[in-house]
Design a protein around this nucleic acid. Structure first.
Lengths: 160, 160
DNA sequence: GGGGTTGGTTGCGAATCGCAACCGACCCCT
DNA sequence: AGGGGTCGGTTGCGATTCGCAACCAACCCC
């Protein structure tokens, strides 16, 4: 699962993220868990993933603290996989990926839309600057070295 | 690249998204392109990816319209890979994944932080409801079948 | 002509995947 | 007690994909 990489790349959060969830199945598994599909056999039949792979992926997710395995009944003991706080924090990323698929990969119509429950409006996801109180266009994002280490260049995030 | 899947899953935008970018290298390549690393050899040495794989991935990205190959000089003709609108639209997703890695996968300190250029503040990414004008917690997101087809259930997106 | 750079292609061994078969713990039913 | 079913796996094996190294072709400059 881990990609052999240039040591300089250890500093990239996207790299670190993909080490955890950057596998062909893992995000789909997490999508299921978000949707309430939490049991081994449910996920397996929903995704059509091979059981050995599902075993591996779930174990890796538990090991990295994204989901936890909790019993939901005794006699017989059965477990389900639940999101931890770390896992729940992936929600924005999943929403963003889903919205992108809606808009750019489908026939234009969203097969499922996300709704902000309190006001019942369809949810868009956009970077939002709380200071300026406005949406953030890719072209007005730049990056700079953060508190974590190293000599990086200041680079535009999305110049053309 | 394409996962064999239950026909019912064709309707999932996350599935469709992952068919395009859900590979171990593709998002890293796109991260580089966002950062301004756009030439074959630059990407190759930056990521340490094998050249044949990079060739494949770039061709796939061009085929799916996420990046385009444009000449940046004649004599000799050299090309670079640039984001299309479709590719630029992935920005929120990349930002979300990066922020998650910052917060949950590192030593706590972001190696690189994203900045909203106009106001020079660090960028957070959160689903934001434009109607309520407030951030959206995972627990107040639900999903419903959209205009695109099929019989889905109304399910909570992130009930614990 | 020689050497360098860019952007590839080809071939091959090694790792990973997908599928099918099997398993063991536990339940219920007769 | 025995038979059958479900859940959550494990094991083994052929097929696919990956990673690496070697080679290559076009073009530049000296």
């Amino acid at each position: 699962m881990t990609v052999k990489r240039d040591p300089a790349q250890d500093d990239c959060s996207i790299q670190r993220t993909l080490d955890v969830i950057g596998d062909r199945w893992t995000l789909l598994i997490l999508r299921d868990v978000f949707r309430g599909v939490r049991r081994f056999s449910q996920i397996q039949s929903d995704l059509g993933i091979a059981k050995n792979l599902l075993t591996d992926r779930l174990a890796a997710l538990v090991a990295s603290g994204v989901v936890e395995k909790v019993p939901y009944q005794d006699r017989p003991v059965r477990h389900e996989y639940r999101l931890t706080d770390k896992g729940r924090a992936l929600s924005p990323a999943l929403v963003a990926l889903m919205r992108w698929g809606d808009e750019w990969c489908g026939d234009g119509d969203a097969p499922t839309e996300l709704v902000h429950t309190p006001c019942d409006t369809r949810l868009e996801l956009q970077p939002w600057c709380v200071v300026c109180n406005e949406p953030v266009a890719p072209t007005s994002i730049s990056s700079r070295p953060g508190p974590g280490r190293h000599l990086d260049q200041e680079t535009a995030h999305a110049a053309t």
